[in-house]
């Protein structure tokens, strides 16, 4: 018998279920328990960058909004640097006021989710010379989702950077790239990016195996 290498296997995923809010965003479940809960407001008063709201729905295979999705967002700061020791882009300033992460749930009534954050800058790409266009990494879990879904939200007003983005350019057929573009709107002077995510069916959002 051939001996096995001593790697461990990743723990299998299981659905987050309908009550994911209790553990991750208890206020939405209907109670408050922690002194410092995590939430959807990602930027503080001193955070550098353009204030934006990200808003959207998550649609199922029939096009119906899912009202029990939990989403997390992970992004670089306004200069395009992640608040993490593995980011060694020393030409960009860190912003200690910005963790770059938040979580929220789609509303039980309207089905809308939203984040309050800042627009990220471009981040250096994998090969070191092609920047990635500004984007926000999203992760979705819910009842009926057996393993968390990774996607990216790009900004529809960054046409030149999007056209050169090494990840967007990889996606074929090219028409699917549009599923990752958020639409910029102005609402009472505030900048809102609208980003609907389609779990299944035309046009199905691009999800990544990262």
């Amino acid at each position: 018998m051939i001996p096995k290498l001593d790697y461990l296997s990743e723990t299998p995923s299981q659905t987050a279920g309908p009550y994911v809010h209790i553990g991750l965003i208890p206020h939405q479940a209907g109670f408050d328990i922690f002194e410092k809960p995590f939430g959807h407001v990602m930027a503080g008063p001193d955070t550098k960058g353009e204030r934006i709201r990200i808003e959207g729905r998550v649609l199922d295979g029939l096009g119906q909004p899912c009202r029990d999705i939990m989403l997390e967002a992970w992004q670089a700061n306004a200069a395009g640097r992640y608040n993490h020791p593995a980011d060694r882009q020393t030409d960009k300033d860190p912003d200690p006021t910005f963790r770059g992460w938040g979580r929220t749930g789609t509303d039980f009534g309207t089905g809308l989710y939203h984040f309050e954050t800042i627009k990220p800058g471009p981040v250096i790409g994998r090969r070191g010379y092609k920047p990635m266009a500004p984007h926000i990494n999203l992760w979705l879990v819910a009842r009926g989702i057996n393993i968390g879904l990774n996607t990216r939200m790009y900004f529809d007003d960054e046409t030149a950077l999007n056209d050169a983005d090494p990840v967007l350019r990889m996606i074929e057929p090219a028409v699917r790239r549009e599923t990752l573009l958020a639409r910029r709107e102005l609402r009472d002077g505030a900048v809102v990016y609208v980003f609907d995510i389609r779990l299944q069916g035309e046009p199905e959002t691009v999800f990544f195996d990262v």
Binding site: T15, D60, G61, L62, C66, W74, A76, Y82, A86, D87, Q89, V123, I124, G125, R126, M132, H135, N137, A142, R143, G144, I145, N146, L149, R152, V167, M170, I171, L199, Q200, G201, E204, T205, V206, F207, F208, D209, V210
Partner: peptide
């Protein structure tokens, strides 16, 4: 899971800083 699972393949993405 029937209506909440993608029908198209996941895009395999080599790791970047993101």
């Amino acid at each position: 899971s029937v209506l909440r699972s993608p029908r198209l393949s996941l895009w395999s993405l080599q790791n970047s800083l993101s």
